[in-house]
């Protein structure tokens, strides 16, 4: 069996706020002891509300956020890196192997560079090609994969629509030949008709080039459609992780269930049946004790207020961090909010 491309154990990212001179030092655990494995060639989804730490986790896996605790192993068919202790040349090499696609295709592209130069820049900065001809050939090849033609390459980004710009961003991320790509809300800023196009492109890239993706999104219906495996975060902790189908058909954590239930149903007759999550995500500087979700959980009991639930296996590749995952059927109370819908 091939080892996973990313194997994170007890990964933490901790920031210190305030200098401690006049104000007390406050620690913020943006990512708090997360363990996850991204299998090679997998499309791995990461969901959660704003402030759940999903972006920070993605950055940490790219070594773009400081890893304060735990261990992360990256492994492809050529190298094996311990991300916490990378020497400079290794880190440089890792930059080539792991890439990021941003959310906003309008902010991510320099307006003063042609599309060709935007896509070629990583090759030049990393010194991956020996000649201009080689660079051009590589740019053309990757542009074609992202359905950009030669005519497009001569133009500037302002001439492109949101969907085309996102294809340019994707081409730029892929040009160095990465094996692992973090796509952080990469379709969130796009209209649905274009979103479908970009999602199909990402899936084709995963299939054809065997690239592993960490797909970070707040949109569960998108995640349900493209991801093989989904992990759910809440206040820096992983609360549930499972193969997509298992997670959506039977969530084993009340937070996952609440998230699913909050998606507006396309059925106009299915109004108000959704279970509503009360309140908001607490501040990460003062997380609740015990299970961090207990302040908003309608199943919470005394034990949840004092004891941090461990992430434990509850099905094949299915883990949950809930004391009462066996006891309660979290989906029962609110009916099939994510099942019934329109259709002819």
């Amino acid at each position: 069996m091939t080892p996973p491309v990313i194997d994170a154990r007890d990964l933490s990212v901790r920031y210190t706020i305030g200098h401690g001179l006049l104000t007390p030092k406050v620690h913020l655990n943006a990512v708090d002891g997360v363990s996850l494995r991204i299998e090679r060639g997998n499309f791995f989804g990461l969901v959660g509300e704003s402030g759940s730490g999903k972006t920070t986790l993605g950055r940490a896996l790219l070594r773009a956020a400081p890893i304060s605790g735990g261990e992360v192993i990256y492994q492809d068919s050529e190298v094996r890196y311990d991300l916490r202790s990378l020497a400079k040349p290794q880190l440089k090499d890792y930059r080539k192997r792991a890439q990021l696609i941003f959310q906003d295709p309008y902010a991510a592209l320099s307006p003063r560079m042609t599309v060709r130069d935007i896509i070629a820049e990583p090759l030049e900065v990393m010194g991956l090609t020996a000649s201009r001809e080689e660079t051009d050939a590589r740019v053309r090849e990757i542009a074609a994969k992202c359905r950009l033609n030669l005519e497009h390459l001569r133009r500037f980004p302002h001439a492109f629509s949101g969907g085309q710009r996102q294809r340019i961003s994707i081409a730029r991320a892929l040009v160095s030949g990465p094996r692992f790509v973090v796509a952080d809300e990469s379709v969130a800023a796009l209209d649905v008709s274009i979103q479908a196009d970009v999602l199909n492109l990402l899936k084709a890239i995963q299939r054809d080039m065997g690239i592993s993706f960490l797909f970070i999104s707040h949109d569960l219906s998108v995640v349900a459609h493209v991801c093989d495996h989904v992990a759910v975060m809440y206040l820096g902790r992983l609360v549930e992780s499972a193969p997509t189908r298992a997670l959506f058909s039977r969530p084993r954590h009340p937070y996952t269930s609440a998230l699913l239930s909050a998606i507006p149903s396309l059925d106009p007759d299915d109004r108000g049946s959704a279970e509503k999550l009360e309140g908001e995500i607490p501040s990460p500087t003062a997380p609740p004790p015990g299970c961090k979700f207990h302040t908003r959980c309608r199943f919470a009991r005394e034990r949840c207020r004092v004891e941090v639930p461990a992430l434990r296996e509850i099905g094949p590749e299915h883990v949950t961090a809930c004391h009462f995952a066996e006891e309660f059927d979290f989906t029962r109370a609110h009916g099939p909010a994510h099942a019934g819908a329109a259709g002819g």
Partner: peptide
């Protein structure tokens, strides 16, 4: 309108939408 869209554009919007009631449905961009 949502159950039985009549205009090709409305239909296109609905077909591009990822739906939780059918995870196998292809996402068809307009």
């Amino acid at each position: 309108v949502i159950r039985a869209p009549a205009h090709p554009y409305t239909l296109g919007l609905l077909n591009a939408l990822p739906r939780l009631d059918d995870l196998d449905a292809e996402l068809t961009p307009v």
